[in-house]
């Protein structure tokens, strides 16, 4: 069900994105920060799902709130002539790597467990024979 939703969402999003009008180049910087923030939220959501403490409210608020907040901070940084978006990128990308590491470890553990189980089964079969 969820995978169908993801695939359908991607297709619809791609159609909308292709047919949308071009945005001004100066705004694309804000958009890029928002995309990074959203991606960070998505990876955070996946990681929390694997940890089994996924919260829909936290996910949705993080997804939209982080994006909007990063855009606002970038705007403020431009007004103050400080490159705040660099800090945002560092934070978001750093968190993304953290979450990716969590996801990776989860699946690695799963894999090794599977192998050990298989070995044990094989060993049992060997002893039986």
């Amino acid at each position: 069900m969820i995978f169908i939703a993801i695939i359908l969402g991607c297709i619809v999003g791609a159609l909308i994105g292709v047919n949308m009008p071009m945005i001004s180049y100066s705004y694309s910087g804000y958009l890029a920060i928002a995309i990074i923030a959203a991606l960070d939220s998505v990876f955070g959501g996946i990681a929390s799902t694997l940890k089994k403490n996924f919260d829909l409210k936290i996910f949705v608020s993080g997804f939209f709130g982080n994006a909007i907040l990063s855009i606002l901070l970038t705007y403020l940084g431009q007004k103050l002539n400080v490159d705040i978006y660099l800090a945002a990128i560092v934070v978001f990308v750093g968190r993304m790597f953290n979450n990716l590491a969590i996801i990776r470890r989860y699946y690695l553990d799963k894999w090794t467990e599977k192998r050990q189980k298989n070995k044990k089964v094989e060993a049992k079969e060997m002893t039986k024979k």
Binding site: G9, C10, G13, M20, L31, A38, V42
Partner: peptide, 8 residues
């Protein structure tokens, strides 16, 4: 979320 992210 998928729609928004992919379109943007």
């Amino acid at each position: 979320v998928c729609i928004v992210l992919v379109s943007v």
